[in-house]
């Protein structure tokens, strides 16, 4: 592939005190690609996402968003962050959807979506409002613009959060277990929205426990365990026909679960 990766993580190493949670992880995502990261709890997948979104700092490796270099290894193999400007430039490239939404409770749905484009990107209010309303409608939230998060269901809140991330026009959208706080019914409405984004070729990285969804929606699946990428490949292959024993046993537990 000749296109430049939207994000490239190279040889990421991350420790919490003395526990190594990411051991030499490399991952690049190209425009239009949908990548799902699966794996057991504690495998490091959320930490990887938090490193990519600058919520955590890693000790070794490099991180690049297109031409924006966020961190690079020095001669001693220690990651050196380039500084605030690079951080801020990178934040203009990605959006993140949290497991527990993290909407601003004191803002209406519309204000949640509109505020950052106006306050951070200094865009014009009318133009932002038009885009925000369009995005909310696209999320199936027409008529909910003036509602506060506390008046919305979990599924609706998560869809507002997706609209909020999209309104900054990111090149890539990260999802950190976007449906883990939702019941099966609400899960489906959120997955539907993510699926429609995939059809529009939005570049996305999704950490998820929804295996069927990961298989159907993503181009590539990454299986992580113990801080390393155990296996990765085309979604169908990894989920339907895993090669590694660790992946097999992990996925078989899910299949048992779904047959109950």
């Amino acid at each position: 592939m000749t296109t430049q990766a939207v994000i490239s993580l190279d040889h990421i190493q991350k420790r919490f005190n003395n526990t190594e949670v990411l051991k030499d992880i490399s991952l690049a995502v190209h425009p239009g690609e949908v990548v799902s990261i699966i794996g057991p709890s504690g495998s490091g997948k959320s930490t990887l996402l938090r490193c990519a979104t600058l919520l955590e700092r890693f000790e070794g490796g490099s991180l690049r968003y297109g031409d924006v270099v966020v961190a690079e290894n020095n001669d001693q193999g220690v990651a050196v962050y380039k500084g605030k400007e690079a951080d801020q430039a990178a934040r203009q490239r990605f959006g993140l959807v949290f497991q527990n939404f993290n909407l601003f409770p004191h803002y209406s749905a519309l204000r949640n979506v509109m505020d950052a484009p106006i306050a951070v990107q200094k865009r014009e209010k009318g133009e932002v409002e038009a885009q925000a309303r369009k995005l909310l409608a696209q999320m199936g939230l027409e008529g909910k613009e003036d509602n506060y998060p506390c008046e919305l269901s979990g599924g609706q809140q998560q869809r507002v959060a997706i609209a909020r991330a999209l309104c900054l026009n990111p090149q890539i959208l990260f999802f950190d277990e976007p449906t883990s706080a939702l019941d099966p019914e609400l899960t489906q409405e959120v997955l539907k929205v993510i699926r429609s984004l995939a059809e529009e070729h939005m570049t996305m990285v999704i950490v998820t426990h929804e295996m069927t969804f990961a298989r159907d929606v993503s181009d590539r699946v990454v299986f992580m365990d113990g801080g390393v990428i155990v296996e990765e490949g085309p979604a169908q292959e990894v989920i339907n026909n895993p090669q590694h024993n660790r992946t097999k046993s992990f996925l078989s537990r899910y299949q048992q679960g779904s047959e109950d």
Binding site: L54, Q88, R91, N100, N102, A116, R164
Partner: peptide
Amino acid sequence: VGQREAAQVLGY
């Protein structure tokens, strides 16, 4: 803490 994180990611 999620409120701060959300704001940080949005670029505030």
